[in-house]
Write a protein that binds this DNA or RNA. Sequence first.
DNA 1: GTTTAAATATGACAATTATCATATGAAAAC
DNA 2: GTTTTCATATGATAATTGTCATATTTAAAC
Lengths: 226, 226
Amino acid sequence: MNKCDQCIVRQLSSLKALNKEEVIQLANSKTSYSIKKGEAIFEEGEVTNGVFCIKDGVGKLSKLSANGKDQIVKLVKSGELLGQRSMISNEPANLTAKAIADMEVCFIPKSEIIHFFNNNNQFSLNLMQSICEDLKESENDKIALVQKTVKQRLAETLLQLHDEFGENPDKTLKVQLTREELAGIIGTATESCIRLLSDFNKLELIELVGKKIMLKDVRALKKMAE
Amino acid sequence: MNKCDQCIVRQLSSLKALNKEEVIQLANSKTSYSIKKGEAIFEEGEVTNGVFCIKDGVGKLSKLSANGKDQIVKLVKSGELLGQRSMISNEPANLTAKAIADMEVCFIPKSEIIHFFNNNNQFSLNLMQSICEDLKESENDKIALVQKTVKQRLAETLLQLHDEFGENPDKTLKVQLTREELAGIIGTATESCIRLLSDFNKLELIELVGKKIMLKDVRALKKMAE
DNA sequence: GTTTAAATATGACAATTATCATATGAAAAC
DNA sequence: GTTTTCATATGATAATTGTCATATTTAAAC
């Protein structure tokens, strides 16, 4: 009757390398939380002293600029770990983590993670690979920001959101982002984002169903993203 | 008479955690190269199967866009390792590495690094922290690209180059970048970069000494970067 | 259910930045 | 030493994107 054993995070994240004993140890040291949509898991500058497992929900990692705009660096979803980098670097959080949809998370204290890291080579390799994946993605995002137009980035982001989060029964994107958040991901002004969505709608690349977005012409979007 | 033992890379990089035996092992498995300015160490898509130690010189990690522009993701200098991410991820290189100044590098095969990783916790932690540092930097760069103007990014980059690489006896920046490369770092067109340098020169924030750049008013540059 | 607040939408305009053209200077090739 | 090539420089202009204003719609609060 070990709850961590069957957890999605244990199946998808670096934690899959843990053996039975380690999972028991994990289950005993973790604490569970519910985070409501809009609430923060941690804020920039906070010392977290551990990592968060995302059992359910979606979150965003972002940084607020001086002019009040919130640049979203990464979305996280169930099965993933959060706060790995700060923990490894021994630094306060560089970004703020907030729930975009209601979340269920568990907190694992740093001491546990370090223990696994030192005693389980597969776990440390997994953790490293996961951070490397983040690094690659971040570098590619950075390049896209410079080499692509806002229109291309919007097309690219819509496709990525579709790939990563899937669609609802009505074919709309499953992640429910505000236009402001979508703008924060592609790195543009909210109005520009809204305007382009409207253009895409007129071009029948997408369909706007209320605040939800449905991809209508994936091929054309892919072509546009290049 | 162990050459790796006294090497700057051994003093500055994750390799500082290696013990005597491991350093001997390292010295026996490494191969040394000289890379002339402009030459590539590895290219995007290549399988490297190991990491490169930078004994001397400066390199750039970049990606060429469809329109021929070269976005520079990171500069690397003596004491640093190169190609860690691809090796850990088991992927071909995501970026091209080229020498900006003549370089002396050593190649360490993957098998060696993995061996150290599995047998030396401090080494694996160092390696991880170094990658985390890259990730943080990349995320912050990404945010700056969106939240700052080209002018601010130029000011910021000049200060960073000064901090990281220092200055020549004539007070000019030690890293000798072309205007095109500088534009590739801040993510703008070469002409825009040249124009802004010219403006900065007129404002007496910097002085252009031929192709070299001297920082004249660091305080004003810092203010501008914010 | 009405009021209020917030999100979405669109127009008008300004600012920033890129592109193209062309000139000048410096270094490399012959 | 001359020619050629490349980097730097600057002007003119266009394209992209941001900002401000203001509707309109939707959701939340009372």
